[in-house]
C-alpha cells in the first residue's frame, strides 16, 4: 500500500494528494439545489396532505488505498491484491488479508490476466431506474485469473439463453475515451473459440421469459 498518504501527526507531516486530472461527466440538467420543499397535494376530503421534498446531493467517494484498482480501469488493466504471507489473491481487492492468522497483513498489488470463468449467472428483466433501457442484462459472477472470489459484471456478446456455468470469458474494456474509472468500464465476453451448447428446455424457457422484456424496452425509447 502507499505509505506516503498515512497521516503522521507527530512529525506534522501530511502528504495530501493534489488532484490535477479532473473530469466531469455530469449530465447538464442535474443541478444541486439542496433541500427544498417543492410542492404539495391535498386529498379531496381535506384529510390528507403530501409534501414534496427535493434532495440532491453530490458525494465524493474517496477510494483511498483502493484507488489503484479504479485508476487501473482507466488504463485498461485489472489490478488485484495478494497477501504476501498466505498468497491468497482477490478481485475485488482487499488492502488487508482476510485470513485471521495473517493478522490483517497488508496486501500487495498484482496485475490480473484479462480472462475469467463464470461461477454463476442470471438474466435481469428488471433493474434500477438507471439501467432499464439496457434490459435484458446478463449478469455473471466470474472468477478472474486465480482470484479466490468472484466479481459481478455484465456478459455481452451472447444471447441471454446461451450463457452457461463455467464458460470461459475474456475481459473487454470500453474504448479509452469512454472509460470513467468504474467497474462498468469493462464487461465480460465469451472467450475466443467458445461455442454455446445446443438448445434445450431451459433455453426455451429463458427465451419465453425475455421476449416480453425486449418488447417492453422498445416502448421506453
Amino acid at each position: 500500500m502507499n505509505e506516503t498518504v498515512v497521516l503522521k501527526k507527530k512529525e506534522g507531516i501530511v502528504k495530501k494528494p493534489i488532484f490535477t486530472e479532473k473530469k466531469s461527466y455530469r449530465p447538464v440538467n442535474v443541478k444541486e439545489t439542496g433541500l427544498a420543499f417543492i410542492g404539495h397535494e391535498i386529498s379531496d376530503d381535506g384529510n390528507a396532505m403530501n409534501q414534496f421534498l427535493h434532495y440532491d446531493q453530490l458525494y465524493t467517494i474517496r477510494h483511498g488505498w483502493n484507488s489503484k484498482f479504479f485508476i487501473g480501469l482507466l488504463e485498461g488493466k485489472i489490478w488485484g491484491t495478494r497477501c504476501p504471507k498466505c498468497g491468497d489473491t482477490w478481485v475485488p481487492v482487499r488492502t488487508h488479508c482476510w485470513n485471521l492468522d495473517c493478522n490483517l497483513e497488508k496486501t500487495e498489488w498484482v496485475e490480473m490476466p484479462l480472462n475469467a470463468k463464470v461461477h454463476t449467472w442470471t438474466i435481469a428483466g428488471w433493474s434500477g431506474r438507471s439501467s432499464l433501457k439496457r434490459l435484458p442484462i446478463i449478469l455473471v459472477y466470474a472468477v478472474i485469473g486465480e482470484s479466490k472470489v468472484a466479481i459481478a459484471n455484465e456478459l455481452h456478446g451472447v444471447k441471454p439463453w446461451n450463457v452457461e456455468f463455467d464458460m470461459p470469458l475474456k475481459i473487454v474494456f470500453k474504448p479509452k475515451e469512454d472509460r470513467i474509472g468504474v467497474v462498468t468500464d469493462f464487461h465480460f465476453e465469451p472467450a475466443d473459440g467458445w461455442e454455446s451448447s445446443p438448445t434445450n428446455k431451459e433455453k426455451e424457457r429463458i427465451k419465453e421469459l425475455v421476449e416480453p422484456v425486449y418488447r417492453w424496452v422498445k416502448t421506453l425509447e
Binding site: N66, S127, G128, L139, A152, V183
Partner: peptide, 9 residues
C-alpha cells in the same frame, strides 16, 4: 463501488 452499477438491484 463494485456492484451498484452492475445489476443495480
Amino acid at each position: 463501488r463494485y456492484e451498484l452499477m452492475v445489476g443495480g438491484i
